[in-house]
Amino acid sequence: MSHSLAPAVAPEFVYKLISPAASFIPSDRVLPLSALDKADGFYHLSTSAQVPGTANRFFPGSKFGDLLILKIRFAGIEPLVKWEAAKGEHPKDASRIFPHVYGDLLQEHVVGTILMNWIPEEAAWDFAAGWEDRLQQ
């Protein structure tokens, strides 16, 4: 793990955003790589604080019909994670440092899912307070 960019306290959970939701098949042993993951050579993940921004920036409802969020226990994947800035960025704060998984992300690491709702009036996904509590176990 890249310790220079890693947070001082590891998160309990990290999140993988998937669209379309139908591309997530719970019986698959290894989670599929998105087109962006394949191009970059790793799985893109986010911390809970980063999820709303990532969702609304990279998965706009005008382009994506649905959005599934996978909740992943960090301890199970920690050896595969490198904390890195988004491509081309040199952030001054930790909010722009993301967990990236190099290696296989296994179904056994997923501990919950949530299918997000798009709010057309707000042009944003529904990240009302407590969105993590809506995760299905």
Rank of each mutant, 00 (worst) to 15 (best):
A75P: 11
E12L: 14
S4W: 05
F74G: 08
Q137I: 11
I114K: 06
K38C: 11
P7D: 13
G88V: 10
N56G: 06
F42T: 11
L135A: 10
N117H: 10
K92H: 12
L105V: 12
P120K: 10
L67A: 07
M116E: 00
N56W: 15
E78I: 12
G53F: 03
H3C: 14
F64L: 14
I69M: 00
S4Y: 02
V101F: 01
G61V: 04
L70V: 10
Y102D: 02
L67K: 00
E78Q: 15
I25K: 03
I97F: 01
F74M: 06
E84T: 08
R57T: 12
S4A: 15
F74L: 14
S34E: 00
G61P: 04
S23T: 10
L31F: 07
K63R: 04
Y15G: 02
F64T: 02
M116T: 00
I25G: 14
A75S: 12
S27H: 10
K82T: 13
F127Q: 03
K16A: 03
K38H: 09
F58W: 10
A6M: 07
A6T: 11
L135F: 01
L106A: 05
D93R: 00
G130L: 04
G76M: 11
Q50I: 03
Y43R: 12
P99Y: 13
I97R: 01
G41S: 02
D40Q: 07
L70R: 05
A35N: 15
F59A: 15
S19L: 09
G61F: 05
D126S: 02
P11T: 04
S27K: 08
E121V: 14
P99V: 10
L31V: 09
K16R: 08
F58D: 15
W83N: 09
L31W: 06
A6W: 05
V111G: 07
M1N: 12
I18E: 08
F64S: 11
H100F: 09
P120I: 09
S34I: 05
F98N: 04
P26W: 13
Q137D: 04
H3L: 13
P7E: 08
R134Q: 01
I72K: 00
